[in-house]
Simulated scan of single mutants.
Amino acid sequence: MSEPWLDDPLGYLIGAERVGDFFARIYESEALVVHHGQPRRFDGLLSIDAVDRLVTSVDLREGQLDLADASRRLMRSDYMDTSGYVDRGAVADHHRAGATIILQQAHQLEPPLGRFCRGLEHVFSCHVQTNLYLTPPNAQGFKTHYDNHCVFVIQVAGEKAWRLYEKPVDTPFRGEEFELGKFESGELKQEFVLKAGDCAYVPRGLMHDAMTSGTEPSLHITVGLITRTWADLMLEAVSEVALRTPALRKSLPAGYARADFDRGAARRKLGELAQIVAREVQLDPALDLLADNFIRSRAAENRHAISEAARPVLPTERFRLQRHTPHRIAEDGDKLALIAPGGDLDFPPDRRPALERALSGAEFTPADLPGENTEAFTARLLAYGLIVRV
């Protein structure tokens, strides 16, 4: 099946004409609702039948599936067996009674969702995850709450009525979870109904709730953006300065934890050190570290690497860079490190021209690459999913 969303993942979600304005004005600031008027726009990502197949035929473990019902409290023990597996009958029974089925990290179960997430990761340079929510008619899974990460809501089937309120916490940290009873929803700001093929963006910290609209069940995908922050970058940058600055590595004053400790001198010292940090801080080392860790943390997209392992690479075969695959070529002492999903691949320095040619995005054959043993070189890149056959 064709996957048109891979050409422009964000544009397919919200419309290509909105992408510029999204990053300039909307991202992390306000909600966006897009009514595409195309009920089958997201066919191929998921279906209610696919959810049924996963729930009723896959041995899901605790943490892969949850149930939620705003009208009653459900515990995992209500739908897990004693071995830690999902009790399929209990799930069906609770769902029949109004509970929302939640499939956590669904991109790990459905390959099209996984590819879609990798496409969005290419856009945002962050981990992207998906949860699925199948809600019966006239039901609500959660009470009013906020999420501590931004989400896109993709309506796949049925309809859901949404209400958006205020932000009790502006741009919460990842660890600032919503606590029932601690935060007020505030004034109702916006109401809308998502129909199949529609999409909404909800920034982190914005209070919201949703309920099935109409007589059919609602299936939507929540796409979560697990981003790094400027605070993360600052911490790495300060750590890098500390590696070069002995004064930042000195111990805190003896007795600093005592009640009678005089903090005056410590305040002055902190001010001096802050000036050193402000003078010495560098963007590139810290940003390179965050970028490299992000790339390494991705999973390789190497479908067919096992089934076609015995297939030889021919000198005239055509290959190209795998779409949306992050990578970086870096010097590491007397060798080159190709930073790639899953980890680093080491090459001798004279392989740089071949690496740059193979990973340029343009089609190539092993015969096009400089150096010797280019078929084996190409086969290695193919095994790690960095390139694909054309």
Rank of each mutant, 00 (worst) to 15 (best):
G15Y: 04
V128A: 04
H95C: 13
A362R: 15
R357A: 15
K269S: 15
R72Y: 02
Q282A: 14
V123E: 08
D232M: 06
T374H: 05
P370Q: 03
A99E: 07
V388I: 11
F116Q: 09
E179T: 10
L243Y: 05
P168I: 00
V277P: 07
H107Y: 05
L382Q: 05
P112L: 03
A257C: 11
K160A: 09
D69N: 09
T144H: 06
D209K: 00
I295N: 05
L369E: 01
H208N: 07
L290H: 10
A379F: 00
Q275L: 11
Q129V: 08
L65W: 06
L13E: 05
A99V: 03
A16G: 12
V169F: 10
L194I: 03
A337K: 11
R258S: 10
G255I: 05
A70P: 12
A50V: 15
R279A: 13
R380N: 11
D66P: 03
D49H: 13
F152L: 07
F319Y: 15
E372R: 09
G205P: 04
V277F: 05
R267T: 12
K250M: 12
R228P: 03
L381C: 07
F23W: 11
M75T: 10
L134Y: 04
Y27L: 14
A340K: 04
V128C: 08
A24Y: 05
D52M: 14
A161S: 14
L270M: 09
A231H: 12
T144G: 14
G63F: 12
E308D: 03
R96D: 13
L243N: 07
A139P: 01
A247D: 04
Q105N: 14
V238Q: 02
Q275V: 09
A358N: 03
S2D: 14
S29K: 13
R53V: 13
S71Y: 01
G98H: 07
K335G: 05
F192S: 05
G114W: 02
A379D: 10
D344V: 07
Q190V: 00
R279E: 07
Q190A: 13
G271P: 00
L289A: 12
Y201C: 09
L386I: 05
A300Y: 11
L283D: 09
L369R: 02
L32K: 06
L386N: 02
A231Y: 11
E331R: 14
Q275T: 10
D350A: 10
R40S: 14
F42V: 10
R328E: 08
T229E: 01
D368C: 01
G63T: 06
Q129M: 13
L289G: 06
G119C: 11
L6K: 03
E363R: 09
